[in-house]
Every structure is written in C-alpha cells, then in structure tokens.
C-alpha cells in the first residue's frame, strides 16, 4: 500500500520534509507513525493530531491505498 504523508509546523522541521510517499504495511495512522519514527527524529504521538484525506481521524482509523495522511502538532492559531 502506498500513502502520501504530510508533516506540519514543528513536525515538518523534525521530519526534514513537508511531504513524502511511502510503501507501507501499516494498517493505521498509529502504526504508520511508529514506522516513520524509526527513520526520522519525530516526537512521540502524545498530543499530536492526525488527518486522513483532509479530515481529522483517530489513530486507529483504517488506512487505504492512496490515502493522504497528515500528522500535526497541537494547534496554535489566533
């Protein structure tokens, strides 16, 4: 399964990239993030948010081929 990953704000800086495409066996954003943390200096998932195809989703959402998965730090607008 191939997914596109987007990182925002401090996660983008930690990842060293805003986007990447990955072939993965991860079934959920949680599994995917764990896999990414093995390769990149990303923080633990506590407090982070995830979106799949531009909608907020929980960490155990079932991923599908071609999904766009975004990992975000706690929001800080205003």
């Amino acid at each position: 399964m191939r997914v596109r990953i987007d990182y925002f704000a401090v996660l983008r800086e930690r990842a060293g990239t805003a986007h990447e495409t990955l072939d993965t066996g991860a079934a959920t954003p949680r599994e995917l993030y764990r896999e990414l943390r093995e390769r990149r200096p990303l923080p633990p998932e506590t407090g982070l948010k995830v979106a799949v195809n531009d909608e907020f989703r929980h960490w155990d959402w079932a991923l599908a081929d071609g999904d766009r998965v975004a990992f975000m730090p706690p929001v800080a607008g205003g």
Partner: peptide, 20 residues
C-alpha cells in the same frame, strides 16, 4: 490546524505548543 512560530531578538525561533 494553524500554528505560530515566534521570533525573538536573540536565539532560535520557536513553535508555540510544539510537541514535547
């Protein structure tokens, strides 16, 4: 999902509410 980064007179800029 909006994030702000502060710039200071000295030292590196920092993301607010950055993940630990």
């Amino acid at each position: 999902p909006i994030w702000k980064r502060e710039h200071y007179p000295e030292g590196p800029a920092e993301w607010i509410n950055a993940a630990p």
